[in-house]
Simulated assay, not measured.
Amino acid sequence: MSEPENTSNSNSTPLPLPPPPSEEASKLDMSSGEATVKMDALGPLVVNQDGSLSRIENWGQMTELEKTNTLRVLGKRNAARREALRAKEGEGEGKA
């Protein structure tokens, strides 16, 4: 096999990165001292059974009704999982 010929492009400067999306980025102002912030574009956090956190992958494609129902169910499930994790952590401390 022969080596490819050098083209005039091979020694030129690399192409620049594409411009950022035209939609304005979300900005957070935490100076008010508020303890909670809604990140609507990212979706809610899911508390997994092992205590790890994740997000709902298709949050951006959900309708408003689906999002409302998901938040209702997820809020209850997250609270139950947090409570179970706290109870499990409390049991571990009593055995030591």
Rank of each mutant, 00 (worst) to 15 (best):
V47L: 12
W59Y: 01
T13Q: 01
Q61T: 13
N58L: 07
T70R: 08
S8C: 04
E5L: 14
R82Y: 05
V37G: 00
S26Y: 14
E34I: 12
A41K: 14
P16K: 01
W59I: 10
T63F: 04
P21Y: 08
E93K: 10
E93N: 06
S31E: 01
E91F: 11
R55N: 01
E91C: 08
A79C: 09
R82A: 09
E83G: 00
S22L: 15
I56E: 06
E93H: 06
E57H: 06
E57A: 13
K38W: 10
S31G: 02
S8Q: 08
S32W: 07
Q49P: 11
L53D: 03
P16A: 04
M30F: 09
G33L: 11
L53S: 03
I56Q: 03
P14M: 07
N9E: 15
A41C: 10
S54W: 06
E34Q: 15
M1W: 06
N69S: 13
A80E: 09
S31Y: 04
T70L: 12
E23I: 15
L53F: 11
T68W: 06
L85Y: 01
P44W: 03
K88S: 12
S54D: 02
V37Q: 09
N78D: 04
L42V: 11
V46Y: 03
A84W: 01
R81C: 08
A25E: 14
L65K: 15
M39E: 14
Q49H: 05
T13M: 01
P20I: 13
L17A: 13
D50N: 00
D29M: 04
G60S: 06
P16F: 02
L42Y: 08
E64H: 05
E83P: 01
E66I: 10
A87S: 09
L42E: 13
E89M: 10
L74M: 07
P4Y: 03
T13N: 04
P18F: 09
T70D: 02
G33P: 00
V46W: 03
T7V: 09
E66Y: 10
G92F: 11
S8V: 13
T70C: 05
N69L: 15
R86N: 05
T36V: 15
R77P: 00
L28T: 11
P44L: 12
Q61F: 12
S2H: 08
A35F: 14
G90V: 10
G33R: 07
L17Q: 09
E34P: 00
M1F: 07
P21D: 04
E3R: 08
R55G: 00
G33Q: 07
A35K: 13
A84P: 01
V73R: 07
L85M: 03
A80W: 09
R72Q: 14
P4A: 01
S52G: 02
G92Q: 03
L17R: 08
R77Y: 10
P14N: 05
